[in-house]
Design a protein around this nucleic acid. Structure first.
Length: 234
DNA sequence: CGTTTTTGACCAGCGC
DNA sequence: GCGCTGGTCAAAAACG
């Protein structure tokens, strides 16, 4: 269910997936035992304007009017409903440790740019000026990415991978700096950003970009929490 | 001494 | 075109 195939769009220029807030009373991984296998994931890919979903088997699909398939091409209805405006998906179940809620934000300016890019790419092919510009830029192709929100005292959550910090930046209108990390594995270009939520500094926002080309480090302590997070993320 | 973190500089993209 | 901002680089410092 939580397969990597959700993140197939490597041409994506600006992916913004849904935020996830985990129950505040779980451990510092933000994931309780029951959450790791049943947490729904509802995200949004801004380049293709399609919604990516992970829906647990027990989820009442009728309540959101979506099918139990994980093929993003079949989620147009949900996409439409989400982008009526800032949208809060209430996924609260009877057990508060099972699910929290997911929130999807609209960033219309990026959506517009993504559409333009799509059009150029389609009409002019890969030799278009825009593509050359993208290729020559330092940022190059934006890898697929997603983020989640965790209530935690520690900034960097142990996800089983080894990271090297390569930058830190104070972001405007926030009192806490954003940290930039890269996976230390050779040939693995996965990056992650860690920052604290301005509105609630108790919350850590972790953003992953790209896909690991390897398994999590085995010499790290093989905590239950990190293996559960790996199951969820990759 | 090898690895990781820190931090100021640099650069690209975007809005005006 | 210019200034602002976020992301990255890379040299120096810190760490183990």
């Amino acid at each position: 269910m939580f397969s990597q195939s959700l993140f197939e769009d490597h041409q994506d220029m600006s992916t913004q997936l849904g935020f996830f807030s985990f129950p505040p009373n779980c451990n510092n991984m933000g994931i309780s035992t029951t959450t790791s296998t049943t947490l729904p994931f509802i995200g949004y890919n801004q380049h293709t304007l399609k919604t990516l979903t992970m829906i647990p088997p027990s989820f009442d699909h009728n309540s959101l009017n979506i099918e139990s398939t994980h093929d993003p091409r079949h989620k147009e209805d949900l996409t439409t409903s989400i982008f009526g405006g800032p949208h809060l998906l209430s996924l609260q179940k009877s057990n508060p440790n099972t699910w929290a809620w997911g929130e999807v934000h609209e960033r219309s300016n990026i959506i517009k740019r993504s559409r333009e890019f799509d059009l150029d790419h389609h009409n002019l092919g890969v030799s278009s000026i825009k593509m050359k510009k993208i290729k020559s830029s330092r940022r190059k192709v934006r890898e697929p990415r997603f983020c989640f929100k965790t209530m935690s005292d520690v900034d960097v959550l142990d996800d089983g991978y080894k990271w090297r910090k390569y930058g830190q930046k104070v972001v405007k209108n926030t009192q806490h700096p954003r940290s930039y990390y890269r996976c230390t594995q050779d040939n693995c270009r996965v990056k992650k950003r860690v920052e604290r939520l301005a509105e609630d500094p108790r919350m850590v926002i972790t953003t992953y970009e790209g896909r690991h080309v390897h398994s999590p480090s085995q010499d790290e302590e093989d905590s239950q929490a990190s293996s559960q997070l790996n199951n969820l993320l990759w």
